[in-house]
């Protein structure tokens, strides 16, 4: 009945290396499951190559086309160099979100450590690409054009802070959406049990939270896909900043 209990990370195989806790937990297990699932879908989907695609091939091709068009739209043709990274991020986040919706599973993206690690990874790639391509000109990102000189230091500080905010917003948005959705589902499911247990009179209203849960589950499916898409498209937008700084 505790709606928070589902997010507990439990070590299966305790491992301690150099004073660090690197135990094999349920989060690790589900991450491995997600990577295996995505790999299997993509490998089987791309192995047939028939002209009229089957279900798995359609899924593989549609996800490829979707991510490719997103990358082209936001980061241009040059951004396609980073397609493998963006596609991996999209498939990983999408599979994590969707797999987390299954009963008794563990939703990895509701752990802020995971989403923050992904976001920091994206931002580090953005900085590395920006610096290696443009050198010090990458710092133009923090200097908007057409600002009077006496306002410039203030604006630069604001721009630097809003650049530092990016990994936080990227990770918190995904994490908070998944966390809130899962808690809502659990609380609604708890209502069903509580109303059934409260006596004969409340049996009549007991199906109502159950119906609400059915609707909410559909909404959570939508949120799962949408948040994966937003994470991907914002990564592309940030990469576009690295490729074309000085906006």
């Amino acid at each position: 009945m505790d709606p928070i209990h589902q997010f507990a990370v439990e070590p299966f195989v305790p491992v301690h290396l150099f004073g660090l806790d690197v135990s094999f937990t349920n989060a690790s297990l589900f991450m491995i499951l997600v990577v295996a699932l995505v790999s299997i879908v993509m490998l089987i989907g791309t192995s047939q190559r028939s002209i009229v695609p089957g279900r798995l091939q359609s899924a593989a091709e549609m996800s490829y086309e979707f991510v490719a068009s997103t990358v082209r739209m936001t980061a241009g043709t040059e951004g396609m160099k980073f397609f493998p990274l963006i596609f991996s991020i999209f498939m990983f986040v999408l599979a994590c979100n969707l797999l987390g919706l299954l009963p008794f599973s563990f939703s990895i993206t509701s752990q802020i450590v995971i989403t923050f690690a992904l976001a920091i990874g994206v931002i580090l790639v953005v900085i590395a690409v920006g610096v290696s391509r443009h050198g010090l000109h990458f710092l133009k990102l923090f200097v908007p054009s057409g600002v009077t000189i006496w306002l410039l230091p203030f604006i630069v500080v604001i721009e630097v802070i809003s650049f530092l905010i990016r990994p936080v917003t990227l990770s918190v948005r995904l994490f908070a959406n998944m966390l809130a959705g899962h808690i809502t589902l659990k609380v609604m499911a708890g209502f069903v049990a509580a109303l059934l247990g409260a006596g004969v009179a409340t049996w009549i209203v007991a199906p109502l939270p159950f119906l609400a849960n059915v609707v909410l589950l559909g909404f959570e499916l939508f949120v799962a896909v949408l948040q994966a898409y937003i994470f991907t498209i914002l990564s592309c937008v940030y990469l576009n900043d690295a490729i074309h700084p000085g906006h």
Binding site: S69, R72, T77, I233
Partner: peptide, 19 residues
């Protein structure tokens, strides 16, 4: 796939209307 030429960049539709 390339509505604005080979190197064209379309603006992402991330404003309020879409979401």
């Amino acid at each position: 796939q390339n509505p604005a030429g080979p190197d064209g960049i379309k603006v992402p539709e991330l404003s309020g209307q879409e979401l």
